[in-house]
């Protein structure tokens, strides 16, 4: 059923029950987000960037997890929404190695887009950079390499992997700031479909997951 909601005092028509974030994005209203993918039944709401204020809600809520309903009044840029977004973005950037010059994602980098949208700089201002435990590039997979210093832990790679293969060939592992992507130790090219698939590489927004081929052609890979 089509319903009408209002976003920043603009009336929008939407199918009832759709994700609020999707409705906004489809209608040209950008809300910063990293972990949301269309078609997710239960979005992870883990990046904590897509906050909005909704009339009647006590606190800002992540719009990816809200289903639109008739008469909903949404505000995407109240001071408290911006406050949370600035904070979340600053935290993400404090754990992301900023090296745009040699990054393969620089042309379509969501972080640069968010930084422009929120009008804050990429480099964190209040806190220093923090490292994740073992920052060596993970090379224990036959065709993928993983760089935790770039990873923003959006989990899109896991989502796409499960969607395509019905099971996971990579997973989150570790605790706290050391949590990152890990492989299950399958090293046999015959038993894992990764070399033919590489969907995770294509979907990674920050080039933290790369195929060996891509890595070798990147400015970083060819210099080392």
């Amino acid at each position: 059923m089509m319903i009408i909601i209002s976003v920043d005092d603009k009336e929008i028509q939407a199918e009832e029950g759709t994700s609020l974030l999707k409705v906004c994005l489809d209608n040209g209203i950008y809300i910063p987000n990293l972990c949301y993918m269309e078609g997710m039944e239960t979005p992870p709401s883990s990046c904590r960037l897509c906050f909005v204020d909704i009339d009647g809600e006590k606190n800002p809520v992540p719009s990816c997890s809200v289903k639109v309903r008739e008469g909903m009044k949404v505000f995407t840029n109240t001071p408290r929404v911006r406050g949370l977004q600035w904070s979340a973005f600053e935290l993400i950037m404090s754990n992301h190695r900023i090296d745009c010059g040699s990054c393969l994602s620089r042309k379509a980098c969501p972080l640069i887009k968010i930084s422009r949208h929120l009008k804050i700089r990429l480099k964190p201002f209040r806190v220093g950079h923090i490292n994740s435990g073992n920052e060596d590039i993970v090379e224990d997979h036959p065709c993928l390499i993983y760089d935790i210093t770039k990873c923003v832990r959006c989990g899109k790679c896991l989502h796409i992997c499960e969607k395509i293969h019905g099971r996971l060939y990579l997973t989150f592992a570790g605790r706290g700031v050391d949590m990152g992507i890990s492989f299950f130790g399958d090293s046999d090219d015959e038993t894992i479909p990764c070399a033919r698939c590489l969907a995770c590489v294509k979907i990674c927004p920050v080039s933290a997951l790369l195929s060996y081929e891509r890595y070798e052609h990147s400015p970083e890979g060819s210099s080392s």
């Binding site: 992870p44 709401s45 883990s46 990046c47 904590r48 960037l49 904070s87 979340a88 935290l91 993400i92 404090s94 754990n95 806190v127 220093g128 923090i130 832990r153 989150f172 570790g174 605790r175 706290g176 700031v177 050391d178 949590m179 990152g180």
Partner: peptide
């Protein structure tokens, strides 16, 4: 920080900053 599952930004990175 040692027990954080690491899923969401605030707990994963924010508590690390507090600890630091």
């Amino acid at each position: 920080q040692r027990e954080s599952c690491g899923k969401c930004t605030f707990c994963r990175i924010g508590t690390k900053h507090l600890l630091t």
